[in-house]
């Protein structure tokens, strides 16, 4: 796919209410390959905000920079310019000490449940890690681990087992339990279900929704799958080549998108109904024909 897309749509007026996360004009660049190569900018001034207890979806294709936004929030990607404010406080240049304290409120669920758990450490110890880091005493930590396992519907004896004894869906539950361990206010979910089977995907998504209802945690939900983002998010941002091209309420963005790129994204995703898919394909063909003329 080539071609130059039209300018991104102006972001809708910021919704009222206090924000838990506020990203303004974020730019991230990585060193170029080779001697004195110019830096490669992957995010060209991205702004988005999340209110407490809200899910904000971030949808885009590979290389769009969607994962980098999450990593920049977590302090895992270098922020070149712009601001990341968490609960009213700048965190884009937070010190290591500040980051450690932040981890109480700011957590992550990574895409790959096979790589995000240390294969040689029993699950219980992985879950206890954030608790120890926050100084929770051993006894309480142990009780909390069992509690967490119950919360994500895993048996209590899971604590002593190694990650390789679990399926992908179960591992992702473990990763969710780890993120929940210290009661965070915001969880960055980086493609949390894209490595999972269809049916497992649904149960993990429902678990995330249920947890949000119970705890009021906010999610930054990153995914390449429009239907997953639509199911999970109150508001959706569409990112393409490091720029947010469209944002708005989930219903509007995912059913009546206004930016041509979002429209193309929506029409490209096949639906599991032959008749509906035929219509969608025809619409995609029409779009292509229009773009070519």
């Amino acid at each position: 796919m080539s071609g130059v897309w039209p300018e991104p749509l102006p972001a809708p007026a910021a919704p009222p209410g206090p924000r838990i996360l506020d990203i303004r004009d974020l730019r991230v660049s990585f060193p170029g390959k080779g001697w004195r190569a110019p830096r490669v900018e992957v995010l060209h001034g991205v702004s988005l905000d999340i209110r407490p207890g809200e899910t904000v979806g971030l949808v885009g294709e590979s290389g769009s920079g969607k994962t980098t936004i999450g990593r920049a929030v977590l302090g895992l990607a270098p922020v070149h310019s712009g601001a990341v404010e968490f609960r009213g406080e700048r965190i884009d240049r937070a010190s290591a000490r500040r980051r450690r304290r932040l981890s109480q409120d700011l957590q992550v669920i990574f895409q790959d449940p096979f790589a995000s758990l240390n294969p040689s450490i029993p699950v219980g110890e992985t879950l206890a890690e954030p608790l120890h880091a926050q100084g929770v005493p051993g006894r309480d930590a142990r009780r909390r681990v069992l509690d967490l396992l119950g919360r994500v519907a895993l048996p209590a004896d899971a604590a002593q087992r190694l990650p390789r004894e679990f399926s992908g869906g179960q591992r992702q539950r473990i990763a969710i339990a780890r993120a929940l361990a210290i009661g965070p206010k915001l969880i960055v979910c980086d493609e949390p279900v894209s490595a999972l089977d269809l049916t497992t995907q649904r149960t993990v998504l429902d678990l995330l929704l249920e947890i949000q209802e119970q705890t009021g945690v906010a999610y930054l939900f990153v995914s390449h799958d429009l239907s997953v983002v639509r199911y999970m998010s109150h508001r959706v941002n569409v990112i393409h080549r490091g720029v947010i091209v469209e944002s708005g309420d989930a219903e509007q963005v995912t059913t009546a998108p206004r930016h041509p790129y979002t429209q193309r994204l929506l029409l490209s995703a096949p639906v599991a109904d032959p008749a509906a898919q035929r219509d969608r394909r025809a619409a995609l063909d029409r779009r292509r024909a229009e773009e070519n003329t």
């Binding site: 209410g17 924000r19 209110r51 049916t199 009021g216 639509r230 109150h234 508001r235 989930a250 219903e251």
Partner: peptide, 21 residues
């Protein structure tokens, strides 16, 4: 398990205890 027909999440409503912090 297919999400095609699942409804989009409705717009966010502030929790009653409106103190976001």
């Amino acid at each position: 398990a297919v999400l095609d027909d699942a409804p989009a999440r409705p717009a966010w409503v502030a929790p009653r205890a409106a103190d976001g912090a």
